[in-house]
């Protein structure tokens, strides 16, 4: 029972308290800019949730190993990226082998989902806070879901801003950035301090 409550609070903190997009600005580019279209972005969100969960799961498993390598500070980021590339490689290989046409269509989406600050952040977070493998999987899931939450919130924001006559210089990307900034200001009330990056 204890772990269940622990997992639920962990998921809640990852979703609302330390929202990956609003408090850590992990994955703004794909949220704001990439031309996937509305449904495409939701699909991208799903893939991203998958990658972050798997990545942080592996990071959680390797945690005792990485912990011991304290003296070799430089290697840790390299290890994360190597893990990500290997994951990307085998997923692409599987997709290429199985569903070739779907893969050719969504190739750029998958590359974006894997080589992504959110995936990297999930792994760094699990090692930084020393989660066990289950907790790291849940926190990875939380980061992915917080991306989807941010996606939903930003969709409403875009439609609401479409009817405001925003000055010409602020149309498009700048106003969306200020919009996300003000939402992260509102979530700052929950966090209350600068997050340990």
């Amino acid at each position: 029972m204890g772990t269940l409550v622990n997992i639920f609070t962990l998921l809640l903190t990852a979703l609302v308290l330390e929202n990956a997009v609003f408090s850590r600005a992990l994955d703004i580019t794909s949220l704001l800019v990439l031309p996937f279209g509305k449904r495409g972005l939701r699909l991208f969100g799903m893939i991203l949730t998958g990658t972050t969960t798997i990545a942080s799961l592996i990071a959680g498993l390797l945690n005792p190993l990485l912990g011991r390598w304290e003296n070799v500070q430089y290697l840790r980021p390299v290890v994360y990226i190597v893990i990500l590339t290997l994951l990307y490689g085998c997923v692409c290989f599987l997709l290429n082998w199985r569903k070739r046409d779907w893969f050719s269509g969504h190739h750029s989406m998958i590359t974006m989902a894997f080589f992504n600050c959110a995936a990297y952040g999930a792994m760094a977070l699990t090692v930084y806070s020393g989660f066990s493998w289950l907790e790291s999987a849940v926190s990875g899931l939380g980061i992915g879901l917080s991306f989807l939450l941010a996606l939903f919130v930003l969709e409403q924001g875009r439609r609401c801003m479409s009817i405001c006559n925003i000055p010409k210089a602020f149309r498009g990307l700048p106003s969306e950035l200020v919009y996300v900034g003000l939402i992260s200001l509102s979530l700052y009330g929950l966090v209350g301090h600068q997050l340990a990056a």
Partner: peptide, 23 residues
């Protein structure tokens, strides 16, 4: 201003200022 929310707003205004200058 060092926190994350101000980062968004400063980058947003920087983008707006750049677009204004380019125009």
């Amino acid at each position: 201003v060092a926190y994350v929310f101000a980062g968004f707003i400063v980058v947003g205004t920087a983008a707006a200022v750049l677009r204004w200058c380019v125009d």
